[in-house]
Design a protein around this nucleic acid. Structure first.
Length: 221
DNA sequence: AACCAGGACGTGA
DNA sequence: TCACGTCATGGT
């Protein structure tokens, strides 16, 4: 079997299903993963929530993005209409815990306008990329976890791991790394969703502090 | 107390 | 194209 599929099997066996993307549960008042359930998001509100979370977590830990999302949720503002009508001052204050709050407030406004223009259709990748504040990873995260398009998400961890394993060159582009994964995987939404989440989980264990890759079991074999 | 976290954009070479 | 600065809060 090829390396890409071997890595997937190994990570899945080690960590199990990750159940991304976490969604707010009104009953528990917390954000929850949904391991083994690939039917989500189940409605438009959840689709929008995932997109907002994808912007808020840019270069920020998920727990910080979660705080910002919870702040929005608490004032019942995790919706397109609420975000559009909120002032920039109010919006940036509400999402402050996620960092880069001025930029992200603008990004949320810009994206929400675009989101409304979709009228519940699925955006093309290039369309998402044309929105200010939506780059490669954010676009792919939205497509994969919100719109359920089997597109591979590459993040800094992905690059760090495959580069460290010698599978790619350190200066390969986003699109090259993405293509490297996609050419070896069948376009299965479950596998794509789990693969990226597993990479993040694995990176948190073995690729977050230097020297990167210490104790990484992907190296033995 | 430096470093990092589920990046993207603007600028100058 | 690409290397580098900027944006910013909160964990460890």
């Amino acid at each position: 079997m090829d390396v890409i599929n071997k890595i997937y099997k190994t990570l899945h066996k080690q960590y199990g299903p990750q159940g991304w993307w976490p969604l707010f549960n009104a009953k528990t008042g917390k954000f929850e993963y949904h391991k083994g359930d690939y039917s989500l998001p189940k409605n438009d509100a959840q689709r929008f929530e995932i997109c907002v979370g994808a912007i808020l977590t840019q270069n920020t830990s998920w727990v910080q993005a979660e705080k910002a999302l919870l702040n929005l949720e608490k004032i019942n503002a995790l919706s397109p209409n609420a975000i559009l009508k909120m002032s920039m001052e109010k919006l940036s204050a509400i999402i402050k815990p996620s960092g880069y709050f001025r930029q992200k407030a603008k990004k949320l406004k810009e994206f929400t306008k675009f989101y409304n223009s979709l009228n519940s259709s699925i955006p093309k990748r290039e369309e998402l990329l044309s929105v200010w504040g939506i780059g490669n990873e954010t676009a792919d995260s939205m497509l994969l976890y919100s719109f359920k398009v089997p597109t591979f998400v590459v993040d800094s961890y992905t690059k760090r791991i495959v580069s460290s394993l010698g599978l790619i060159s350190a200066k390969d582009s986003y699109d090259e790394i993405k293509a490297f994964f996609e050419k070896n995987l069948k376009p299965d939404i479950k596998i794509y969703q789990e693969y990226h989440a597993l990479i993040v989980e694995h990176a948190k264990h073995h690729y977050s502090k230097k020297p990167y890759g210490s104790g990484c079991f992907l190296r033995k074999g």
